[in-house]
């Protein structure tokens, strides 16, 4: 009854998603690998973007994976925390920018 929904060892089983749909699974992992290849953005920059997005989508597996990936790439904790703040700023900003809508409705309906 106390088994948590998220278990860290499940991250190692990520590849198993291909078991029930091999073609789509393989396509996904191939695409995934291509996305993270060094190109116009460095692999290091992509790792930091992934870390920020992981916090936005609140995926504990992704946070685990991209914190470790960052450590391996020599990304330090200040850089990682700044990336998380970028995610937080966009997320907070996304709420706050709707405040304009609130203000407009308020003004329109008020005398």
């Amino acid at each position: 009854m106390n088994t948590p929904y998220y278990q860290s060892q499940d991250l190692k089983k990520f590849k198993n998603i291909s078991d029930w749909s091999p073609e789509l699974g393989e396509k996904f992992f191939e695409y995934y690998a291509s996305v993270f290849e060094e190109s116009a953005l460095t692999a290091r920059e992509k790792s930091l973007i992934a870390l920020a997005v992981a916090h936005t989508v609140q995926c504990p597996y992704c946070i685990d994976a991209y914190t470790q990936d960052g450590l391996e790439r020599g990304i330090d904790k200040q850089e990682m925390m700044e990336a998380v703040h970028v995610a937080a700023a966009i997320r907070g900003g996304a709420s706050l920018v709707h405040g304009v809508q609130m203000m407009e409705v308020y003004q329109k309906r008020s005398m």
């Binding site: 460095t42 692999a43 290091r44 470790q68 450590l71 391996e72 790439r73 020599g74």
Partner: peptide
């Protein structure tokens, strides 16, 4: 590595 993780690509780290 200063912890329980593997080293990154040698060339990329050398650059940094």
């Amino acid at each position: 590595p200063s912890g329980a993780f593997l080293p990154a690509n040698q060339q990329a780290l050398e650059h940094d």
